[in-house]
Computed example of a mutant assay.
Amino acid sequence: MSTDTLDLDDGTADRALLDARGLTLLVFTSQGCPNCRQAREALPDMNLNVDRIAWVDAGRSGGLVARYEVFHLPAMFVIRDGVYYGAVQASLAHWDISRQVALALDGYPAELP
């Protein structure tokens, strides 16, 4: 499956996520974070079962950081067809992220934060 990527911020995220069909992995990162750089390099090549990876620079999007209650970086969240399925607590390993995304999709959906 080909994975698209997009860069979002406080001004673009809501509309883009609400309109996106399929599965989005929303990832918060920061330029000064070594684990974030690793995530930014590794995630697009993991061939995850998602339609897109949406990146948010936490240092430039304080509103999204607050609404999604981001306390550590990188932070990942699952959104399908504009509906929020929650956080993904996983290591940067394909098997772990895939499992946690599937578990999130088994939960109850909610409105986007």
Results as ranks from 00 to 15, higher is better:
G32D: 12
S61F: 02
Y84T: 00
A87Q: 13
P44W: 08
S2I: 12
N35V: 07
N47M: 10
L112N: 10
Y68I: 08
L43R: 08
T29R: 12
I79A: 05
Y108T: 13
R67L: 04
F71I: 08
L6A: 07
A42N: 12
D19G: 05
D96W: 06
L48R: 06
N49I: 02
E111W: 06
A54T: 07
P34E: 13
I53N: 06
T3Y: 00
N49Q: 09
L103D: 15
V50D: 07
L17Q: 07
A90F: 03
L18V: 03
G82K: 02
C33R: 09
A90M: 05
D57E: 15
L73D: 06
R52S: 06
P44C: 08
Y84R: 04
P74I: 04
M46Y: 06
A75N: 05
D96P: 10
L103H: 13
C36N: 12
D14E: 14
G63W: 01
D96K: 11
Q89D: 13
Q100A: 11
D45H: 12
A16G: 03
R37E: 14
T24N: 05
A54Y: 03
P74A: 12
E111P: 08
A20D: 02
A16D: 05
A93V: 14
F77A: 10
L64A: 04
R67W: 01
A102Q: 14
T5G: 00
S98T: 14
C33Q: 09
L73C: 09
D10K: 01
L103G: 12
R99P: 00
L73M: 13
G32R: 08
V83Q: 11
G86Q: 05
E41A: 15
P109D: 09
D106Q: 15
V27Q: 06
V83Y: 03
L64D: 01
L73S: 11
R52A: 09
L112T: 11
A39R: 13
M1Q: 09
H72L: 13
L105Q: 07
R60K: 15
L26S: 06
P74L: 12
V88W: 00
A90V: 01
G59E: 11
R80M: 06
I79Y: 01
E41K: 15
C33E: 10
A20R: 09
A66K: 11
P74F: 07
Q100R: 15
H72E: 14
E69T: 10
V70A: 13
F28N: 11
E111Y: 08
F77W: 05
N49W: 01
A16H: 09
L23K: 11
W55L: 04
V101W: 02
G86M: 05
P109S: 14
M1D: 07
R67F: 01
L64V: 07
D57M: 06
L26D: 04
T12V: 03
D106S: 14
W95L: 13
S61D: 02
D7C: 00
G63M: 03
L25G: 07
V56L: 09
T5A: 04
Q31K: 14
V65W: 02
F28K: 10
R60S: 13
I79M: 03
G22C: 02
S2Y: 10
Y84C: 01
D57V: 02
M76S: 13
R99Y: 11
G63Q: 11
C36I: 08
F77K: 03
V70Y: 06
Q31T: 15
S98C: 05
G32L: 03
D14C: 00
A75I: 02
N49C: 01
R52W: 04
I97G: 13
V65R: 03
G82T: 02
Y84M: 02
T3A: 05
A42Y: 12
